[in-house]
Structures are given as C-alpha cells and as structure tokens.
Amino acid sequence: MQIHPAFFWIWATLIATSVIRLDNFLVSSAAILAALVTVRIAPKSLLRLNAFRLAVRLAAIAIFIRISVAILIGVPMPGKALFTIPQITLPEFLVGIRLGGEVTSQRISGALNEALIFAALILLFGASNSLTTPTKILKVIPQRLYGVGVATALATKLTPQFADSVMRIKQAQFLRGQPARGFRSWKRIGTPVLEETMSRSLDLATSLEARGYGIKRETTRYKADSWRSAETIALLPAIYAATLLPTLSIALFLVALILFLSALAPAVLR
C-alpha cells in the first residue's frame, strides 16, 4: 500500500512546529532522533538516500557554525566559566561585541539549544523530501499554477541529475589533465554543468508543453493516492506534540517520547 505523498510533509511540519514552540533541547533531540529513525526504517524503494545524506551534512554544518560562533564571538554573559581563549581588542565603536575571552557554560548551552533546533528542522524536512517521490508532488500541485508546476518538475527532476553531471564532468576535466580541486576547477566544471542543466530543463519543459500540461483545469489521476485513516492515526502523536502546552518537565519528557514513537508510525503504515 502506498503512503500518501503529502504524509511526510505534514508529519515534518507538525513536529517542526512543536520543536519551535517548545524551544527545548530534549524536544529538539527527540525530533532529530525521530527523523533519523524514520529514514532508517523506511522502505528502501521509497528512500532517496543521497538527498538525506545532504540534509545530514547541512545539519552538521549548522551545529558546527553555531557552536563556533558562540565560542568566538559574543556578548559577556554570566555563568560558570568553562575555559578562556585569548581576547582580541576591537575598535571603540563595536561596543558590547567581544572576540574571544571567557566562555561560559550558559553561552554554550544556549548555542547548543539553538543549533539543535536548526538541525532538527533541516533533518525533518530532509527526511520528508527524501521519502517522497518528487513527481508525486508535481501531481499534488494544481495545474492552473502552470509555472509553479513546471518549476517543481524541473527542480525535482534535475537536482539528482545535477549531481551526476558534476561527477561526469569532473572526470572529463581530470582526463584533460586538470586537477579537480580549487576555485579554478569550479569554473571548469561549472560552465559545462550549467549548460547541460539548461538544455535538460528546456527538454523537460518542451515535453510538458507537448503533453498538454496546464491545458485543462480538471485533471484525473491514473492511480489516486488516497488519504486513509491509517495516515491520520499515524499522525496523532505529532498532532499532540504540536498542540501541547507543556508546563512541567515531565510533560517535556513525554513529548520527547511521543515524537520518537511518531517516527515509528510510517513503518506501521507500510
């Protein structure tokens, strides 16, 4: 049985809502775990692993940048000093900003909390993207939004091909005796890759045009994706988490647990 193409997007949006609203590292961590587990247990046929790997990388970069910034730059904050790095004296007009100096536990924990929220959002939507067949999204978009539909089709179809083109052209440049590193190599690879992507976009747009895309307002579906009650049930924990007003730390723990369980739901749907 097919999972509805919109399911993972709604699931991700709901959990993201709770992550932002609750602003708690336990919830963010639970959401990250939920995203990872969902991808891990998803049926292989559904998953585009490369797309998710990219999301994981992005999330790691987000955490890294946020923590580094917290250590290097910041306003003096009270709290227990963990360690001190050399401070650089800044000009007078930059009052209140400091480079280096004392790093307090509060600064780190605050930054970590924010970083986890970023990472959770990236991973949640990364997971839903990699678990949804791109062309199915095209069919969810109404045809009267012709431009949006064509743009979606181009983006979803060409992104994975883009990675292949880069690989192939990198190889070709290597064969021309050019190392595939450094800024100069990007110009060498960029030009042919962009040209190829352009011509492929034109081909696909031509095909959509020739096949009557956007002509009729009413379209039909060859194999309709139905939203079953199973989908709604699988969403319940996420709905609960998104609407809950937590007051006690126990409630937060509960939310974390629920988020984790909601990740298992897609597997139940199978």
Partner: peptide, 26 residues
Amino acid sequence: NGFVCEIVEDEIAFTMETLGIPVEVM
C-alpha cells in the same frame, strides 16, 4: 530528458492525466 515520472506505467498515463481523461478509459 523528457520523462516526467519515474515508473513506466505512471509515465505512460501522464499525458492522459493532464488532459483529464476519466480513470476507467485511462
């Protein structure tokens, strides 16, 4: 480069979907 869908059947049905041809006929 002109294929819109991933699965053979879906690709074959695509033009009919955009033209709004009834499911049974499709």
